[in-house]
Design a protein around this nucleic acid. Structure first.
Lengths: 249, 249
DNA sequence: ATCGTCAAATGGTTTGACCTTTTTTGTGCT
DNA sequence: AGCACAAAAAAGGTCAAACCATTTGACGAT
């Protein structure tokens, strides 16, 4: 807080020298995100980039490695292989978020809260914007889910898909990607639990049916409320097994 | 769906050869996320890794580049420099999300919806869990904000900080990171708008004051409702400037 | 004490070669 | 003509051995 505890005020910001591969990565990223290059377009070959930029192949490759992790390019081996522009997808986001969750030791409770924050609004949007195709997809998954009620692992996998299908129907790619990113972690944290009984799985199917009815009817408020209840039921189960019938609306 | 439309069943999964730098990156990532290495710990030097793994320096560096983008390490130049373990932070997440938003052409509406989904729950959590330090920080930022009401740019910057401080008080690092990640994009999309008038900035300060009162009182429901109204006001403004007094609760 | 100079340790960069994978092209046998 | 197999070509993947640049510590001169 004192003004004179240091010899002199800064006055000059910290000077940081950009590394060459960073400069190249930045420029390429810029070009890709600007839309100058469409998805699927091919970048120059590594050796081309070398001669265009004057950098060494190693530096070029380090730049490409960065963009690859960022989900902006994919590389293909062999003749007619090369560097292909792509858009960051849900998987890239999920990879990142998963590491965030593991690295920062995000608690199961926090994951559960995130679900509770994301899913009800997504259900409302789904009800308001769903297309016939979305409904189709939801019905299919719901049937599959009902059929897999005996197999815990498979049930969990399809369940995730169903929730993500609701999110996709909401037409908000960002929120859908957030949900997609945590859904795997959530499943890992919950599927192992011993409370995952057959009756509960039947109850889940029932809850889904009711939520889908609201989405089909275009009733955003009902979809929100039912989804809220549905996801909150999981939280209750995580805490206290005995209140398992909370799953039923 | 047919069973015989292809000449022969797969029977053998696709064989994919891992690249050497990927293997190394995976192993290092594993080690870091396992918690074997604490944050701030130093990895072996590049040349050490070369001799330990038998890979070339180039491959080692490509692996490190991946981890760096993932926010798992930082590299420092010079003597006593080296490779330092870090945890993926909000900035790494924000970098990624920003690219996702730009690359996927996420609409302003979607960003706004994301805010509306995230902020009210975070405000409730803040009310329920805030520490004295959190309140202190919020009060400071609120004062700063009131002082900067004449400077649009600065006001916008502090405003972002305030919202993120609320999120931080909610003690859910994941949701807070989500909000942090979009707050810059949201600001960019809105600050430029012509509706950003002096009166509105005063109204914002007022809304913040009321939200803070709820947080301080530990009233989660009120904090949720007030934050909801506050963020929805932005949306209304984005659409129709005339209803600007919606900002006031 | 302060300033310069040098040495050491580390990441950053270059060069140039060779390996591996994938596709295309050619060629020779049937 | 057509097929099979070999060879070439084009791309990314890998290696090796330097050298450059930055930062810090040590030491000495002022």
């Amino acid at each position: 807080m004192s003004d004179t505890e240091r010899g002199s005020e800064p006055m000059l910001g910290r000077i940081s020298v950009q590394k060459s591969y960073e400069v190249l990565a930045d420029r390429l990223r810029q070009t890709i995100l600007d839309g100058t290059l469409e998805e699927g377009a091919r970048l120059p070959t590594e050796r081309e980039l070398v001669s265009q930029t004057g950098l060494s192949r190693g530096s070029v490759r380090e730049a490409l490695r960065k963009l690859e992790v960022e989900g902006l390019i994919k590389t293909k081996l062999g003749r007619l292989g090369g560097i292909i522009v792509s858009r960051p997808g849900n998987d890239a986001m999920a990879h990142f978020v998963t590491q965030f969750v593991r690295g920062r030791r995000i608690s199961i409770r926090s994951l559960q809260e995130a679900r509770e924050a994301l899913e009800p609004p997504l259900a409302r949007m789904a009800a308001e914007r769903r297309t016939e195709g979305d409904l189709q997809r939801l019905r299919e998954l719901s049937e599959e889910l009902a059929g897999a009620v005996a197999d815990r692992e498979q049930f969990a996998a399809i369940n995730i898909d169903w929730h993500n299908a609701v999110a996709a129907a909401g037409s908000n790619d960002l929120l859908a990607a957030f949900l997609y990113s945590i859904s795997y972690d959530v499943a890992v944290s919950t599927v192992v639990e011993e409370y995952d009984t057959l009756e509960l799985r039947h109850a889940v199917v029932g809850a889904h049916t009711r939520i889908m009815a609201a989405i089909e009817a275009g009733d955003g408020t009902a979809a929100y409320r039912r989804m809220e209840r549905h996801v909150k039921a999981s939280r209750a189960l995580t805490k206290a097994r005995e209140e398992s019938d909370l799953l039923i609306e």
